[in-house]
Design a protein around this nucleic acid. Structure first.
Length: 574
RNA sequence: CGGAGUGUAGCGCAGCUUGGUAGCGCAUCUGGUUUGGGACCAGAGGGUCGUAGGUUCGAAUCCUAUCACUCCGACCA
C-alpha cells in the first residue's frame, strides 16, 4: 500500500477514555474506533492484523483436522430452551424478537446450534470423532465493557466443538486442541501459559485457559515456583496447613472493641497478629440447607473464593451475601462483630482457619470481640472446606514449591463438556453394537479480537506498538526522503516496492506529500508498529546504501542496496 | 445493578465558583518557505456548549429531568 492511498488515522493525543495501553495504542494507531460502549469498528490497519490472526488460527485448526463451518449469529430461543440456558444465561444474553414476535438471541456462543446441527447430520460412530469450528462475531451484553477490544460486547471468536463416542476419544481431541492452541499462541509470538480453570457457565468437567501474561490482565493466575503447575486462582486449591492444630495457650476473653469494625481496625487497635484473626461472612443458604444463612470463616488476611464457596452444597448459587439488616434480625449484631462462638447457623471454616489456635473473632455482640478462642475448647470445630483464594507463598497444590501469583489475559479456553448439551438436546449416534448413545462433546474458544489487544499489551514501547512478524499489518515500511525531488530515490523506491511485494512481503510505502516531514513518517510507522523500516535517501544513494532499522533496534544501520533482500529474508519469516 | 465521575469544534482541554451570548493547543483546508525524528509564516473553515424543560431582561454558567460515556465491584474469549 501507498500511504497516499491508504487511511492513516494516527492520533497524537491519547483519547481520555482509554485506560490500558493496548486500547490507547489501538486508537492512536488508527486500528479501531468506538461506535458505542463495547462496540468497535475496525479500520483498515486494524483489520489487517485481525485477519492475520484469523489466518493463523484457521491454518492450525485445519492442520488439526477440524472442519470449518459458519453458523448464524442470530439463534432461535427454542434451542436455548432445550438446553435450559434461555433461563440460566441471564441478562448477558441479548434477546430480540422478530416481526412475528418470535424470540431469538444474538449468539454469545454456539453449543446449542452446533449440537442441533450435528444431531441431524451425524448418525453413526463411524463419523466420529469430528471437530467443527468457525470464526465469527459473538455478542455478550457485558455488564461493563472496558479496555477497548479486550472486553467488548461484540467480538470475534474462534469457537470449535468436537463430538465423540466415549470420553477417551474426547480426551484425545482435547489433548490435540491443547497442542493446537499452544502452536497458535506460539506462532502469534505471545508469552502465554495454559492454566487449569473453572468451567464456569459453559459447564463440563476438565478445562484449561490459555493466558497471556500481562499486568493489565483481569485474572489472577497461581503458579508453582518450581513445577509447571498453573491454575486460575478461582480454582487453585489452598491446602490445609501442615501439622496439627496447636494447643491453646491463652484463655478466651471478651473484649470491648467499639471502634473495630474491620479486621484492619482490630489488628491496629489491639495489636493482634492478622494471622490470628478470623472473619465471618454470612451468605444465603441453598434450598438444600434448613437454615436461611450459612457462616463462612476465613482468616483475617485471606479472601473468600466465591467460586469455591458457591460449589458447597449448603451455599446458594449464585453466591449472595446476607444484607446487614438480615444479619441483625438473625443474631442481633452487625457485620463488624461476627464470630463462630455461640453461632446457631451452619458454619463452614476454611482449612487454614481449622488449624488456627488462640484466635480473635467477633462475639456476635456489637462492639465486642473474643480473643484467645480455641477450637474444641471454646467452640466446636465446624465443617471444614477449602473456601479461600490461595496467596503468594502458599504451598503449591501440586506438592512442589510455593505459589506465585501473576496477572493474565484469557485468550483461549478449552473444555471437556461431556454430555451436558448432547444429553439435553438428545444428540445421539449408533455405536458398534447398533445401540443409541449420547455423544460426548468438547468445546474450544479463542478470543480472536482479544488476541490483538493482548499482543499489544505484551509488545509495545513509548513510541507505540511493536508487532510480531506473524501478525504485523505490514512487514516493511519504506520511507523515501526527497521522493518528489530526487528521481533516483523515486525510481529505486518504486522498484523496491514492487520487488518486495513480489517477494511476498506486505509493504507500506510512505509517499505522503512533501508537507509531511520525515519525522512524522517515522513517528507514524513506529506508532503503527511496523517491524521493519527501510529509508531511501539521496545521501545514502550516493554511497549506494539504504538505511535499515528493526522496530526493536536501538540503532539504524546502513546496508548496501543490493543486500536489502537478503537482510530482510534473514529477519522476516514469511 | 450498586458506588464515583464526565459531557464545550475531529482529538485534548479552559471557561462554570461570581450569568452578559465561546476560547486555547493539536488536527483540517489555502498560499508560501522548509525536509533525517511529530517544522515555520500568513490566512481560512468548523461548536444551537449531550438533550428537554425551568429560573432570569439575559444561561455553557443556576435549578429539574433525561440520555450517553468513563472509572471501581460481580461476568467472560
Amino acid at each position: 500500500m501507498r500511504t497516499s492511498q491508504y487511511l492513516i488515522s494516527t492520533v497524537k493525543e491519547t483519547p481520555s477514555d482509554a485506560e490500558v495501553v493496548s486500547h490507547q495504542l489501538m486508537l492512536r494507531a488508527g486500528m479501531i474506533r468506538k461506535v458505542a460502549s463495547g462496540l468497535y469498528s475496525w479500520l483498515p490497519l486494524g483489520l489487517r492484523a485481525l485477519r492475520k490472526v484469523e489466518r493463523i488460527v484457521r491454518e492450525e485448526m485445519d492442520k488439526s483436522g477440524a472442519m470449518e463451518v459458519l453458523m448464524p449469529a442470530i439463534q432461535p430461543a427454542e434451542l436455548w430452551e432445550e438446553s435450559g440456558r434461555w433461563e440460566m444465561y441471564g441478562p448477558e444474553l441479548l434477546r430480540v424478537k422478530d416481526r412475528h414476535n418470535r424470540e431469538f438471541c444474538v449468539g454469545p456462543t454456539h453449543e446449542e446450534v452446533i449440537t442441533d446441527l450435528i444431531r441431524r447430520e451425524i448418525k453413526s460412530y463411524k463419523q466420529l470423532p469430528a471437530n467443527f469450528y468457525q470464526i465469527q462475531t459473538k455478542f455478550r451484553d457485558e455488564i461493563r465493557p472496558r479496555f477497548g477490544v479486550m472486553r467488548s460486547r461484540e467480538f470475534i471468536m474462534k469457537d470449535a466443538y468436537s463430538f465423540h463416542v466415549g470420553t477417551e476419544s474426547l480426551q484425545q481431541t482435547y489433548e490435540q486442541m491443547y497442542q493446537t492452541y499452544s502452536a497458535i499462541f506460539n506462532r502469534l509470538g505471545l508469552d502465554f501459559r495454559p492454566v487449569l480453570a473453572d468451567t464456569g457457565s459453559i459447564g463440563g468437567a476438565t478445562s484449561h485457559e490459555f493466558h497471556v501474561l500481562a499486568e493489565s490482565g483481569e485474572d489472577d493466575i497461581a503458579f508453582s515456583n518450581v513445577s509447571d503447575y498453573a491454575a486460575n486462582i478461582e480454582l487453585a486449591e489452598a491446602l490445609s496447613p501442615a501439622g496439627e492444630l496447636a494447643a491453646p495457650t491463652a484463655e478466651m476473653t471478651i473484649v470491648d472493641t467499639p471502634n473495630a469494625k474491620t479486621i484492619e481496625e482490630l489488628v491496629t487497635q489491639f495489636d493482634v497478629p492478622i494471622e490470628k484473626t478470623i472473619k465471618t461472612l454470612f451468605v444465603v443458604a441453598s434450598d438444600a440447607c434448613e437454615a436461611d444463612f450459612v457462616a463462612l470463616l476465613v482468616r483475617g488476611d485471606h479472601e473468600l473464593n466465591e467460586i469455591k464457596a458457591e460449589k458447597l452444597p449448603e451455599v446458594a448459587e449464585p453466591l449472595e451475601f446476607a444484607e446487614e439488616e438480615q444479619i441483625r434480625n438473625l443474631i442481633g449484631a452487625g457485620p463488624g462483630s461476627l464470630g463462630p462462638v455461640g453461632l446457631e447457623i451452619p458454619v463452614i471454616a476454611d482449612r487454614t482457619v481449622a488449624k488456627t489456635s488462640d484466635f480473635s473473632a467477633g462475639a456476635n455482640i456489637d462492639g465486642k470481640h473474643y480473643f484467645g478462642i480455641n477450637w474444641n475448647r471454646d467452640v466446636d470445630l465446624p465443617q471444614v472446606a477449602d473456601i479461600r483464594n490461595v496467596v503468594e507463598g502458599d504451598p503449591s497444590p501440586c506438592g512442589e514449591g510455593s505459589i506465585e501469583i501473576k496477572r493474565g489475559i484469557e485468550v483461549g479456553h478449552i473444555f471437556q463438556l461431556g454430555q451436558k448439551y448432547s444429553e439435553a438436546l438428545e444428540a445421539k449416534v449408533l455405536d458398534q453394537n447398533g445401540k443409541s448413545v449420547v455423544m460426548d462433546m468438547g468445546c474450544y474458544g479463542i478470543g480472536v479480537s482479544r488476541v490483538i489487544a493482548a499482543t499489544i499489551e505484551q509488545n509495545h514501547d513509548e513510541s507505540g506498538i511493536i508487532w510480531p512478524e506473524s501478525i504485523a499489518p505490514f512487514h516493511i515500511a519504506l520511507i523515501p526522503l526527497q521522493y518528489d525531488k530526487s528521481d533516483d530515490v523515486k525510481a529505486l523506491t518504486d522498484q523496491m516496492y514492487k520487488d518486495l511485494q513480489q517477494a511476498g512481503y506486505d509493504v507500506i510505502l510512505d509517499d505522503r506529500d512533501k508537507k509531511t516531514s520525515p519525522g512524522v513518517k517515522f513517528a507514524d510507522m513506529d506508532l503503527m508498529g511496523i517491524p521493519h523500516r527501510v529509508v531511501i535517501s539521496p545521501r545514502g544513494l550516493e554511497a549506494g546504501t539504504l538505511e535499515y532499522k528493526g522496530r526493536r533496534d536501538t540503532d539504524k544501520q546502513d546496508i548496501k542496496v543490493e543486500e536489502l533482500m537478503s537482510v530482510l529474508a534473514e529477519r522476516i519469516n514469511l
